[in-house]
Design a protein around this nucleic acid. Structure first.
Lengths: 126, 126
DNA sequence: AAGTGATTGCTCAACAATGAACATTGCATC
DNA sequence: GATGCAATGTTCATTGTTGAGCAATCACTT
């Protein structure tokens, strides 16, 4: 489900595309931190996006810093990002509800019903 | 952050311990589906939990089914599960808020402000 | 200039996890 | 019984990901 590699990777790709559309001059480390992956993973991801033709490498504007790149969305990348938005939002809303339910269940479990003098420490078994 | 291998694995371990405490006779496939990992991953995880001494293999009750096992929490496993609960809940609540913020941001982006006659289709760039 | 430290993109071994198989066992219908 | 079918735990090649480190470049001080 949530751990499916394909969807998880799609999430990362979408987030990276979204971030780069706003700011194409983000460094790989900034991207990694913003998305929540490792630095090597960001590099890996960017290569995949370039391979797919969704982004291309441009010139960094400030001071001709030869180290840095700018990762610019191609038209195909912009289209892909738009196409991904709906699925991403839908998935995240489902995750949101699931997370809410899990948290609530856990809270209930931690705070047993105090309204009657029920025996404590006794979890109800199925 | 969220993709950190250690925390992600801790989440899986906690969920598995929690599920097994309620029902020790769950199959690896049921566990996998409930937790959101692959079948092989469940096997992998169970081995790790046995290695840690948190669960032990017991006998399946019904019909002496030689295929199935029962995965019973050891006292150490019960303690570990309790110790993990707090951290897990705290982390999930943080994830919950982050998810909420991300969804809201995405919704705002999809539905541009309609309250004045602003030009449409024009996302505000930084 | 020269040196020092910080930051960049990048590489790589180790590990984690997947997805698809596998052998074994139980259940059912013939 | 025998035969087919579904479900179990298990294995394994492939792939994704991490974390630490690399050379190159920039900024800054001497």
């Amino acid at each position: 489900m949530a751990g499916s590699r394909k969807t998880s990777q799609e999430d990362v790709h979408f987030r990276v595309l979204r971030l780069l559309e706003e700011n194409p001059e983000m460094s790989q480390r900034d991207l990694a931190q913003a998305v929540g992956i490792s630095v090597g993973g960001a590099h890996y991801c960017l290569n995949a996006l370039i391979e797919k033709g969704l982004i291309k490498i441009g010139n960094f504007s400030a001071a001709r810093d030869k180290r840095r790149y700018a990762y610019i969305l191609t038209p195909k990348g912009i289209a892909e990002k738009s196409a991904l938005t709906g699925r991403f939002l839908k998935r995240k809303m489902a995750e949101y509800e699931a997370l809410k339910a899990e948290i609530d269940a856990l809270k209930v479990e931690l705070e047993p019903t105090m309204d009657d003098s029920a025996p404590r420490k006794q979890a109800q078994q199925k």
